[in-house]
Every structure is written in structure tokens, then in C-alpha cells.
């Protein structure tokens, strides 16, 4: 088995473990390359099926191609697609692009808060109706107790400390100092009522591994990652006001893999185009403690 086969086997094992242990299980799909690989691994784990809903938090500032791509795949792969949003903040224009919040505050409002309340079922969930192709108000308001997330340990410091199964308390808080032990492929799968768990099947993958795997498996991903002819492409996808493309002429997956192995990105952090990370030195850790992905 090569390194990608080992990573795949480990992720599949974790996904099956999560599916076995949690009744109200969902996967967060950010439309980016990592969670799309996660979605692919799910189809591997369950032999072509995706046996739980996919949740997307739509900040309304996502790059439009992302939404189109999401719905295209959702229909093609018959995904149980659920979308959540902080409609109140958007309506009252409490966002960074509206000039009323800082970047970090905006992330908190449009992502962390929206996610928290979508998972708990307190805020409306929109579910795709596969007969009409439209989103409809979901009648299921049960809280989701297991949430599968595509976080990777190499992204930044605080993520390198995550567990494969990471508990969150009622307020979505992450207690970094007191995390459960994990050994011998045994994870924390027992939870007191009211708490829930984040499951991280991609923890050991690097950015390069993700691209190598996309290449090997020919996973369809959004073409925002590729140079559109102007010499720039996105390396990491987020909201358009806070995500800048990088200078790169990589036009396909193979060229991206080459660029990461030996080229100009071999030693530059992936999230360098994500502005919210720069506001405060512990910014992302603060956000993660508050439930950010």
C-alpha cells in the first residue's frame, strides 16, 4: 500500500466508525477540495452511497461558481443536501463587506453562528428536493450530534492538535487542554446528552496528498482552483471579499501537484490568501474554540 492508499484506508475506517456510532450524523461540505475529497472517501466507505446529509453554510458571499458546482454535484450524486445561513445578519447588514464588522467578527457571525444554529436545528435548514431541484424548508429540526469535517493537521497550529473524534460541549466549545485519548484505532464515541462530536477523517492528509488523491481518483472539483487564463487561481476557497487568488498558471490537477511538490508553493502556507488569519496571532484558534471549522 502506498501513502495515499494508507490515508484512504484510515479515513474510510474513521467514516465507518462515525456512521456506526452516531445516529444524527452529517458531513460539512464547504465545496472546497478537502471536503470534496471527504465526500469522495464517503462514497468509497459506503460503496457508492452517501448515507448521511451534507451541510453547507452559505455566507451569501461565496464565489458564485461554488454554489453552482455544489448543486450540480448534489443532483448528480443524489446527495441529501442541507443549507444553513445567518439570514438575520445578512438582512440587517451586520457583515464585513457591509462595513459593519471586522473580518473575524464576520466569520463568527456568518460561519460559526450559522453553523452552530443549523446543527442544533434552531435556525431553518433548507433541503434540496431532488424532484424539483429546488431547496425547501426542512421539516427535520433534530440536532445533529455527529459532524464530519475536512480539517487537516497541517493547515495551522491549532488544527495539528485535533483528535480524529473531537468532542464539543453544548456551546460548541473545544477544550484544547483536555482532549480524549485516542489509541489503537479506538476513538471517543461515547457522549453525554447535549454534547456532540466533530469527526476529522482527513487529519493526517497534507495539501499535497489531497491533490495527489484528486489526481489519482479523478475527483471532479470546481475549476476555481485552476488558472482561468489571467495567471491567477484560488489555492483555498472562501468568501470572495476575504479570499484572494494566488499568482499561478497551473491549469489542471497535475500542474498543481507539480507546483506543490517542487514549485513556488512548496514552502508557502496554504491559507496565505485567507485574510482573517492575519488579524490576530491566535485568530484561527480563537475561532476554532468558538466552533469555526
Amino acid at each position: 500500500m502506498d501513502h495515499l492508499q494508507k490515508l484512504e484506508a484510515q479515513s474510510v475506517h474513521i467514516l465507518r466508525e462515525a456512521y456506526r456510532e452516531f445516529k444524527n450524523l452529517v458531513m460539512l461540505w464547504s465545496i472546497g477540495k478537502d471536503s470534496t475529497v471527504l465526500l469522495w472517501l464517503t462514497r468509497k466507505a459506503f460503496f457508492g452511497h452517501v448515507p448521511f446529509p451534507l451541510v453547507h453554510i452559505d455566507t451569501n458571499f461565496k464565489i458564485p461558481e461554488m454554489i453552482a458546482y455544489r448543486d450540480r454535484l448534489a443532483i448528480k450524486w443524489k446527495l441529501n443536501m442541507v443549507v444553513g445561513q445567518n439570514t438575520a445578519a445578512l438582512k440587517t447588514k451586520q457583515t464585513f463587506p457591509d462595513g459593519t464588522l471586522s473580518r473575524i467578527e464576520c466569520c463568527k457571525a456568518l460561519k460559526s453562528e450559522a453553523l452552530k444554529h443549523t446543527l442544533s436545528g434552531e435556525w431553518p435548514r433548507q433541503r434540496m428536493n431532488h424532484t424539483t431541484g429546488e431547496y425547501e424548508l426542512d421539516t427535520d429540526k433534530e440536532p445533529y450530534t455527529g459532524v464530519i469535517v475536512g480539517a487537516r493537521a497541517d493547515e495551522e497550529g491549532s488544527r495539528s492538535k485535533e483528535r480524529y473524534f473531537s468532542p464539543r460541549d453544548k456551546d460548541n466549545d473545544w477544550d484544547v487542554g483536555d482532549q480524549p485519548p485516542e489509541l489503537w484505532s479506538q476513538y471517543k464515541t461515547d457522549f453525554a446528552p447535549g454534547t456532540h462530536v466533530r469527526v476529522h477523517p482527513l487529519l493526517d492528509w497534507t495539501e499535497l496528498n489531497i491533490w495527489e488523491y484528486i489526481d489519482r481518483e479523478e475527483i471532479p472539483i470546481t475549476n476555481l482552483y485552476f488558472d482561468q487564463g489571467d495567471g491567477t487561481r484560488y489555492r483555498s476557497l472562501g468568501c470572495f471579499p476575504c479570499t484572494t487568488p494566488v499568482q499561478s498558471t497551473a491549469r489542471n490537477v497535475g500542474e498543481i501537484v507539480q507546483e506543490l511538490r517542487t514549485g513556488r508553493f512548496a514552502n508557502i502556507a496554504e491559507r496565505s490568501g485567507r485574510e482573517q488569519d492575519k488579524e490576530d496571532e491566535g485568530g484561527l484558534e480563537t475561532l476554532r474554540r468558538d466552533g469555526y471549522m
Binding site: 493537521a153 497541517d154 495551522e156 497550529g157 495539528s160 492538535k161 484544547v176 487542554g177 493526517d204 491566535g282
Partner: peptide, 19 residues
């Protein structure tokens, strides 16, 4: 010791992974 707590206390609290 990337976490804030660890920098202030100067010890490693949790296991970290370096690629």
C-alpha cells in the same frame, strides 16, 4: 507550541504533529 496557552506556560499541553 502553537497554541496560546502553551506559549504562555512554556510547556506542551497536547500532542502536536509536524509534517
Amino acid at each position: 507550541d502553537a497554541l496560546k496557552d502553551e506559549r504562555s506556560q512554556g510547556i506542551t499541553i497536547d500532542t502536536a504533529r509536524c509534517f
